[in-house]
Simulated assay, not measured.
Amino acid sequence: MSTLSLAGGPVSWGVDFADATGNPPYTEVLDGVASSGLRWVELGPVGYLPRDPGEARAALAARDLAAVGTFVFDDFHRPDAAGRVLDAVDAALDAIVETGGALLVLIDRPGEERAGTAGRATLAPRLPDADWARMIDLLRRSADRATARGVRPVVHPHAGGFIEFEDEVERLLAATERDELGLCLDTGHALYAGGDPAELVRRYGRRVEHLHLKDVAATVRTRELGFWEAIAAGIFCPVGDGLLDLDALRTALDETGYDGFATVEQDRRPGSAGDPAHDLRRSVTRLRAAGLG
C-alpha cells in the first residue's frame, strides 16, 4: 500500500518566480493551503516567503503548516548559467533547512528553445550531447550540495524543459545513481508530454521519491500552444476535471509502495481567472475520495 502526505504550494496561485508582477501576498497563499485541510506546504521560489527564518517559521506555525521543501526552477541546460544556478541552489537549501523541510526539487525551466514545442516530442529540439553532459554535471553538483546539508534532491521532468519526454527521463536516470538523485513525477507534466502517469510510476519504481499531483484539460491539450500560452489558456485544471486517471494512479502507487509527499498543484499565471483556494479544495477532496491521501 502507498502512503501519501498531501501538500499545497504557491504554484497553484501562479507563483513561479518570487519577483513576478501580480503575485498574491504570501499570507493569502498560506491561508488558502491551510483552508484546504492540508498540513504540508512547498515553500515556493526563494524570496516569496519571508527571507528571515524566524518570520518564515512563524508564518507556517501560525497556520499549523510544515515545510516539505522547495524548488530551483532555472536554466540547468545553459552552461553559462551554472554559477547563478548553484547560488540559487544554496539559497533554496538555506530556506529548506531553516524551515525544517526535506526535499529540493531541481527543474530545468522552459526556455526559448523548447517552450514553443512543449508536449510535442517529434518537434522538440534536443540538447546536444556536450550540453546534455554539462546539464547532468550541474544537476549532480546541485545534488551533492543538497545531500551535504541533509536534504534529498529530486529532478522534476517539466514541460518545455530539456528533461520532458520519456526518452530524456530514461537518459537522466541512466546517467545518475539512485543514491544521488531521485525523481519527482509530476502527473500533469507527464500527461502534457504524452505519458501515462500510472505506467511511469511502475516503470520508474523506487526512483520516484516525490509527486506533484495535477491534471490536464483535454480540450486545451489538443491545441498546439507554447508552454506559457497553454498555461494562460487553462491547460492545468483541478484534479478530477481532466485526463488524470485517479484509480489507475492509486493502483500503481500501491503496487510500488510509494511512501512520501505529494504536492497538489495547478499551474497558472499570476492573476489568472478562477479561485486557486477553491480549486485546491476541490482537488484535495477528489484525491482523498479516490484513496490518495
Rank of each mutant, 00 (worst) to 15 (best):
M1W: 08
L6Y: 09
G9Y: 10
G9T: 13
G9E: 10
D16K: 08
A18L: 12
D19C: 10
T27R: 10
A34Q: 11
W40C: 13
W40D: 10
V41C: 14
G47M: 10
R51P: 15
R51G: 15
P53M: 07
P53N: 09
G54F: 06
A56G: 08
A56W: 07
R57C: 14
D64K: 13
A66D: 12
V72E: 08
P79H: 06
D80Q: 12
A81C: 03
R84Y: 09
D87C: 13
A88F: 07
A91R: 08
L93Q: 06
G101S: 04
V105K: 00
A115R: 05
A115D: 05
G119R: 02
R120I: 01
A124D: 15
A124Q: 12
P125M: 05
L127A: 13
P128S: 07
D129Q: 13
R134K: 09
R134A: 11
L138E: 04
R141K: 10
A143R: 02
A143I: 05
P157R: 00
P157S: 05
H158A: 04
A159N: 06
D167H: 10
E168G: 04
V169A: 08
E177A: 15
E177F: 00
E177T: 15
E180F: 02
L181K: 03
L181D: 03
T187N: 04
H189G: 15
H189Y: 10
D196I: 00
D196Y: 00
P197F: 02
E199A: 15
Y204W: 12
L211F: 07
L211H: 02
D215R: 01
A218P: 03
R223F: 00
G226T: 10
F227W: 14
A232R: 09
I235H: 04
P238H: 03
A248T: 01
T251Q: 10
T256L: 02
G257P: 05
D259M: 05
G260D: 05
P270F: 04
S272T: 14
A273H: 06
P276W: 06
P276N: 10
A277H: 11
H278G: 12
H278L: 15
R282Q: 13
V284N: 02
V284C: 04
T285W: 06
A290Y: 09
